[in-house]
Computed example of a mutant assay.
Amino acid sequence: MYVDFLSSSSRCMRIPRTMALCYDIGYTDMRIPNLLEHESMAEVIQQSASWLPLLARECHPDARIFLCSLFAPICLDRLIYPCRSLCEAVRNSCAPIMACYGYPWPEILKCDKFPVDHGMCISPISDGTSSSRRMPRASCRDCELEEASTSKEILDIFCANDFTVKVRIAKKNMTSPTVSDFDMDSKVEIVKHGPLAKLEIFPKLQRWLDLDATCVQNIMRGTRMGSYVISGNVQEDKVVVNNAYAWQKKNKNLQYAVRKWKHHKCRS
């Protein structure tokens, strides 16, 4: 059951830039311990980072607000909890995505722990109908490594996406799926840059690499490192990867499609 009083150990702290989940959320100071009983900023940063891949999936417009109300509660004279309706809205959209990758909705976020809506809790901001943001489907095949295709099919995929690049990715830690576990070689071979300026591609791909660990893990399939041809779209200020192929000598169709792209004309 929730409580709204402040403990004697409670203190206000600045939300650090290294807390990517909640930095620049709309307020600057948070309470420690937080509503999940994390006692130190180091623990908060570590635990909150594990939610970044889900946030990158944009499973609900209010997911970040809900998570930050718990990880980084605003520093007022009383604790402000998320309303039960906010928890339920985020859970209903995001839990299927989590289950797809083998993660159940955690007990610490069980919605009946939070207060029924009233004036002193954080209620949903979006109404679920007016948002134009596409909700992802709970599909484990989202952002998977593609199997061998014909060169024509690969070229059609290049045409359908905003950009296509060849990158080399290495996994730093084989046991942990959390943020910053991947490195990308700064030498990116651009096949198609679309609306992106060429100098934008590496930093935007680095942001994708840092945030969408689930996608990267699906592509790498447990390997330590590899080269991949990836295609995707530009959404607002970030890139979203839709298709990926392993760059291997045996995939002659992929190599042919990359070579042929410069002279290929897409069907309108």
Rank of each mutant, 00 (worst) to 15 (best):
T178D: 09
Y256Q: 04
D77H: 12
T129S: 14
N251S: 11
T178I: 12
C111H: 06
I15S: 08
W247L: 09
R91I: 01
L155I: 01
M220W: 01
M19K: 08
N34V: 08
L21C: 02
T164R: 01
T223K: 13
I74T: 05
I80R: 05
D62P: 11
A257V: 06
L109K: 00
S7V: 11
R57Q: 13
I15H: 09
I32W: 03
R64D: 05
C159N: 02
H193W: 02
R207T: 14
R267F: 06
C68S: 14
S132T: 05
D237F: 11
V165M: 01
H264Q: 04
S176T: 12
M41V: 08
K110G: 06
I230M: 13
R133W: 09
N243S: 15
V165A: 02
W105T: 03
N92F: 02
H38R: 06
Q217K: 10
I169V: 15
T28N: 14
I32L: 15
K172S: 10
R133T: 10
W247K: 02
G119I: 02
S85Q: 07
L21Y: 01
I201W: 11
C140V: 09
C59P: 03
C143R: 08
A49M: 14
S48T: 06
R168S: 14
K110R: 11
T223M: 04
E147W: 04
